[in-house]
Simulated assay, not measured.
Amino acid sequence: MMKVAVVNLKGGSGKTVSSFHLATAFAARGRTLLADCDEQGSSLSWASAVEEDGGEVGFSVMGLPVKDVNRRIRDFEADYEYVVMDTPPGDYMVARSALMAADVAVLVVPPTPIDLDRVMPTLELIADVEDMTGLTYYVLLTRVRRISREGQDTRGAMAEMELPLLEAEIPLLGRYSDSFGQPIRDLGEYERVARELLGEREEVVR
């Protein structure tokens, strides 16, 4: 079983898009739950929109915007092989509780100056939980502009900080930003993210 918390205390980093895509990737491998820990309920709204349009998301979605996520999730986590937690911006206690429940944290960060400037509180929160639970964490760059040096420069800066940066990154493409409310039929780079998190080998096409 794997429990993944998708985090960043700053809003607008791509947490919900990442959570929904990762849950879709995991659901292809086993029974999966997406826990929406944000009181705004974006993941729940996404799933509802898909189902109202006659589609299926392929995994369970539950609202869990509470400060004791780590306790509540124990009641049903055994029913799933994978649990993804979409955490809120700005709510330190809920984010911390989700991290306490997780085996792995994915810190999603767009490579912009303001996002990099405001990432430290989340890193400090992760470090606090890491010391207590042995949490493993990775940094995932999102909304990377391929024609810009932002992503490359950010990778260099994070390497100097010795942060565990995933090789896969999510480009700034409409296929991701416009996917809200739609079933995910093409995971794009999120399939590579899932493979990295699970330690799976990349498929070689000849």
Rank of each mutant, 00 (worst) to 15 (best):
M2L: 11
K3R: 09
V4L: 06
A5V: 00
K10Q: 14
G12D: 12
S13P: 11
G14K: 14
K15P: 10
T16N: 15
V17K: 08
H21D: 01
H21P: 03
A23S: 14
T24F: 14
T24E: 12
A25C: 14
A25G: 15
F26M: 07
F26D: 01
A27L: 07
R29Q: 04
R31P: 02
R31I: 04
A35C: 07
D38E: 03
D38L: 05
Q40S: 07
G41A: 11
G41F: 04
G41D: 08
S42H: 03
S43M: 10
S43T: 07
A47Y: 10
A47I: 09
A47G: 12
S48C: 03
A49E: 15
E51C: 01
G54H: 14
G55E: 13
V57D: 07
G58S: 09
G58T: 08
F59Y: 12
F59W: 02
L64V: 06
V66W: 00
D68W: 04
V69P: 00
V69C: 07
R71G: 01
R74V: 15
E77K: 10
Y80P: 05
Y80D: 01
T87W: 08
P88Y: 06
P88H: 02
G90C: 07
G90R: 01
Y92T: 02
A95H: 11
S97Y: 04
A98H: 01
M100A: 06
V108D: 00
V108H: 00
P110W: 01
P111Y: 05
D115I: 08
V119R: 10
V119Q: 07
V119A: 06
M120C: 05
T122C: 10
T122F: 09
T122I: 08
L123M: 13
L123T: 09
E124D: 12
I126W: 05
I126P: 07
A127V: 03
E130V: 05
E130G: 10
D131K: 15
G134E: 08
G134A: 08
G134H: 05
L135P: 13
T136G: 06
T136S: 11
Y138L: 06
L140K: 00
R143H: 12
R143G: 09
V144R: 04
V144D: 13
R146I: 13
R149V: 07
R149C: 11
G151M: 04
Q152D: 10
Q152F: 13
T154R: 05
M158W: 00
E162P: 02
L163Q: 11
P164H: 06
L165H: 07
A168T: 00
E169C: 12
P171G: 12
P171L: 09
Y176P: 00
D178I: 11
Q182G: 13
P183A: 13
R185I: 10
D186M: 12
L187D: 02
G188Q: 13
G188W: 12
Y190D: 03
E191V: 04
V193A: 04
A194E: 04
L197R: 06
V204W: 14
R206N: 14
